[in-house]
């Protein structure tokens, strides 16, 4: 058996639907107060707007100044600057005295944030977020006794 509405009930229901639709419509037209900005859709390469001085380079040139450590005897070894420790991945490899101040200018990927600098068993990880970086061979020591 199916339930049927009487004319009065039908009228009331119609009124509710109309009010509900109106409320929905009003709400749908209202912009949320704090809308999250969405990333711009790609417009195509030809539509890109870039700074007039943008060089489109994916590499950067950095200068690494290595402060030598005065040694009792001349100590010569291989200074390397690499992306990772180990492996055949040196941006630079050269023979130097440990006491020598060395300045090396390198081209590395712009996305590279750090480099491994090694001199024999001495190894340091340096940040290369700036154009000029200084590194030395001094070991990290425990703080002095108070």
């Amino acid at each position: 058996m199916k339930h049927k509405l009487n004319p009065m009930q039908s009228k009331k229901l119609g009124k509710y639907i109309a009010i509900g639709t109106l409320l929905f419509a009003i709400n749908a037209c209202t912009k949320p107060a704090a809308e999250t900005p969405q990333p711009a859709e790609p417009q195509g390469f030809s539509k890109l707007e870039v700074a007039s001085n943008f060089d489109w380079k994916n590499s950067k040139t950095i200068t690494i100044n290595v402060t030598g450590l005065p040694t009792n005897e001349p100590i010569r070894s291989t200074l390397t600057m690499s992306r990772h420790s180990g492996g055949n991945e040196d941006f630079y490899a050269g023979s130097h005295l440990m006491s020598e101040n060395v300045s090396v200018t390198l081209r590395i990927p712009a996305a590279q944030d750090s480099l491994i600098v090694r001199f024999g068993t001495v190894q340091k990880t340096i940040s290369v977020k700036t154009r000029t970086v200084t590194v030395d061979y001094l070991p990290t020591i425990e703080p002095d006794i108070p």
């Binding site: 291989t78 690499s82 992306r83 990772h84 492996g87 055949n88 991945e89 040196d90 941006f91 630079y92 490899a93 050269g94 023979s95 081209r107 590395i108 990927p109």
Partner: peptide, 8 residues
């Protein structure tokens, strides 16, 4: 020595 660009 060998040095490389790009390195790896």
């Amino acid at each position: 020595y060998k040095s490389f660009y790009p390195a790896s």
